[in-house]
Amino acid sequence: MKRPEGYDRPPAGAERAAGPKTTAAKSAGAKPAAAKTARPKPGGRQSSGRSDHTNTEPITLPAADTIAPVSRLRAPDSSLSSAPASTEPRDSALTPAGARRKLRAARRARKLYEREEVRRFTWRSRRRRNVWLAALGTLAALVTFVLVGTFSPLMALRTIEVVGANRVPSEKIRSALDDQLGTPLPLVDFDAVQKELSAFTLIQSYVTESRPPNTLVVRVVEREPVGALVTESGFDLVDAAGVVIQSSAERPAGYATIDARAGVGSAGFRAAAAVIAALPADIRSTLDTVTAATTDDVTLTFVGGARVVWGSAEKSDFKAVVLAALIVSHPVGSVGEYDVSSPDSAVLR
């Protein structure tokens, strides 16, 4: 590779001329810069005595101990300069008492930390345990309440209250249930109660109600009489099911006689009883006889002799409304017969 032109080695005279300057540079403690000389080209012409090179002055660095540290060159912090300097020595000797205090404080801090960690990792199990404990506590309280209410003498039956009894004396019902007195309310034998009350034929149904701490309420529904049946000994007052409510030698006042040729259990009797039950109370009290040979030929007779052709027991409620309207417009005695077998087209005769 060829050197660029102008950088050939300088002649010997030039080196001698530059000698004192280099010596001066060495005396100053810096390394002299090496002068580049141009080499003569082979076969070429020698350059002139002038040399094209650059002389550099050495740079002298200050000593390391004369350079200020960076931390000393920083501006002082106003917030730090305003704080009072600590008067305690940094490297004060640790006494045995102080060491024990620090050890106890470290142990307490360690225990608190471990406790918090245990709580943090076991909160789900603790919550599940609390739920189970609450459920078991509730169950135990309920069982205790049931046992106390069942076997405690505070819940023993002392009073029997009868409601709805008119034809049946209330005293008879209470005396029939005296065997249950002293028994805790949850342990009352209701099968025995039913057996005792079924002996009263006038009681159609009943409902019992327990009133803690010691009262039993018996609500009675008595049978409703619908008419009287003619018998050899007199008259039997019966309800819609044919159950005899009362027997007497004379006809009961306010009740019509039922003429059912096939007997109490026949379809004619059931149809006649259904018709009487559908009539209003003011019309029922003026009836004299109800005749029903079959379910489709029910006939009513008033005390004055007027007749009502009723027909079957179907639509009895509607027929009762139509008959009441006809009696208002045509009172009993002014008409011989009311025909409501077809209630949409009633006929007066």
Rank of each mutant, 00 (worst) to 15 (best):
A156G: 10
D259H: 11
Q46D: 05
R284A: 12
P42F: 11
S248A: 15
G137R: 11
S247D: 09
P343W: 00
Y113P: 01
T286I: 08
V238R: 01
T150Y: 06
R211V: 09
R174V: 15
S71P: 00
R107E: 09
R251N: 08
T286R: 12
A293R: 15
G19F: 10
I276T: 05
V321P: 01
Y338D: 04
D296C: 01
S247L: 02
A277I: 06
A64M: 07
L300Q: 02
V162I: 15
K315C: 02
S345W: 07
A274T: 07
R126G: 10
A105K: 08
G137I: 06
T183F: 03
L73P: 00
S27M: 13
T286C: 09
R72S: 13
G44S: 12
G149L: 12
T294G: 13
E337F: 01
K319T: 05
A165H: 14
R223N: 15
P76E: 10
V148M: 09
V163Y: 01
A346T: 02
K319D: 00
G149T: 11
Y7F: 10
A324E: 15
S82Q: 13
A249N: 09
K102F: 09
S175F: 06
T23D: 12
D282A: 08
S312W: 07
V303D: 14
T291Q: 13
P252H: 04
L323K: 05
P184L: 10
T60A: 04
S266R: 07
K195W: 04
G265W: 06
G43F: 07
T301W: 00
R115Q: 15
S71H: 05
P20N: 08
G19Q: 13
L133Y: 05
S233Q: 14
L139W: 04
T257E: 12
V162N: 08
A24Y: 12
E5T: 11
D239G: 03
V243D: 08
T201C: 06
T294D: 14
G19V: 01
N55S: 07
M1P: 12
R174I: 11
F145N: 05
K21R: 10
R16T: 02
A68G: 00
S27I: 09
G254R: 13
L185P: 10
V290N: 06
R72N: 06
K36D: 14
D178L: 02
E114S: 14
W132F: 04
Q204D: 15
G98V: 12
T150I: 13
Y7M: 11
W123M: 01
S210I: 15
F145V: 14
R115D: 14
T295Q: 07
R126V: 06
K31D: 09
L187W: 04
L300T: 08
Q46G: 05
A253K: 03
R284M: 02
F269P: 03
V275T: 14
L147D: 07
P96T: 08
A267W: 00
S81Y: 03
A346V: 06
K111S: 11
A240L: 02
Y255F: 15
Q46L: 07
K319N: 01
T294W: 07
V131A: 15
T54M: 06
H53Y: 09
P186K: 05
S285K: 11
L279Q: 12
S27Y: 08
V308Q: 05
R104T: 07
